[in-house]
Design a protein around this nucleic acid. Sequence first.
DNA 1: CTCTGAAGATATGTATACATTAAAGTCCAG
DNA 2: CTGGACTTTAATGTATACATATCTTCAGAG
Lengths: 237, 237
Amino acid sequence: MGCNDTRSQSFAGKETPMATENFEEFAYTAILGLILDNRFKPGDFLFETELANSLGLSRTPVRHALGQLVAEGFLEKKKKKGCYIPEVSARDAQQVFVLRETIEGMAAASAARWATEEEIAFLKSLVTKESNPDNTLSKLDVLEINQAFHLGIARFSGNRYLEHYCRHIFWRSNVYVFFYDNYYRENIDYSKLKTPGQHARVVAALENRNDEKAGNLMKFHVRSTYEMLFMKMQHLG
Amino acid sequence: MGCNDTRSQSFAGKETPMATENFEEFAYTAILGLILDNRFKPGDFLFETELANSLGLSRTPVRHALGQLVAEGFLEKKKKKGCYIPEVSARDAQQVFVLRETIEGMAAASAARWATEEEIAFLKSLVTKESNPDNTLSKLDVLEINQAFHLGIARFSGNRYLEHYCRHIFWRSNVYVFFYDNYYRENIDYSKLKTPGQHARVVAALENRNDEKAGNLMKFHVRSTYEMLFMKMQHLG
DNA sequence: CTCTGAAGATATGTATACATTAAAGTCCAG
DNA sequence: CTGGACTTTAATGTATACATATCTTCAGAG
């Protein structure tokens, strides 16, 4: 149970704290990295001592970081027992994605009003990258572009609270993306998936400053993602 | 600066931890109580040592609790400086209420589908209380009924993430309700305000299981609250 | 008088020792 | 066997001592 090594692949790319950040922040991002990197499975407990040792810290900052992650809903906690990865279920996935649809829809609509031209250009560059059939993008590349796209729109909404919720529900929903990924590893040409086209259409609506359209297209895109996942996840029960 | 006494009036009704709860939980609810009770003004810092002394704890559980409150957006934090009450502004209020409108609207719509008959009856009883012109309700009573109503609907939405966001944005928006309250203390007959009637109509929609109507009525209600506050808050700038 | 900077005060950040408790294991009686 | 109470164990919960960074203050140079 838990993680025995500190090596970090892909997402979990932090082994030492940056100059500016303190141990609490380092622990937070490191642990979140481990979670997003799927190093634990639902129901697994994250032990303070074990994490502290593997990160080379004392329990204090680790405990603080775990508290944050619980407060933000990435982890759950049993009193005097510990923090653990939330169980996944079809019902939970439905709750997460229904909410994400609304929240991100709202963010896209708001971004149509508040995003600067430079910000929209940035989003456009992301779409260009992921749409190019010449590039051979790794799964990780795709994940990172997708993250930059969704969190970018969240930021460009100009509403700090909305951005906060977007980030949260995005990461929470990604638990299901990763979960799915673990069970169905295939080689896919991502440029042929529906995602890039849907992203492109959202950006087009942003360029036209059409908030209603941007919101609806984003909602459609999120629902489309959910349905794609759910088709493959019937076994969750 | 900060709070010098431990006495608790109105909201801040906790001086000793309950049997079941540990010091971290006690500190959390106690500090939240102090915040909601308006013991601090925007920009005030909450010192760990001071809080620990006044609550009769060590800094450890207090610090943990402050971390939670920051993670949940009740407080902001400057590194190596401390936690402080977020500043208020017209722009911030607008962001908060626009979001609250969407979030609580969604919750009401969801509750129309998922709330049990008992839960709807509970909401109805709250409306009855606040609508009764015979009762002389204190400001505190009204605040508590209002809280029970809004957080009740959040819970009855059946979506734990949505409930989480509702709680958060509700409390955040209440900063403005309290702020306003501090500047404009008047004696008002609450049963004559628009609020009880708007609450009643939301409940009626829930009874009819009309999700769209429930959502729209709630959105309207939240916007109405905002507009009422904003009329009085032009001076915020 | 103002600006600069160095020293002191104060609050946060971290490690560690110890207390507590939930749960797993163990032993014995039925 | 089986069940229940005791023991052990391994984790969290808490207090405290110390490290560190930031703000304040005050002195001295320009």
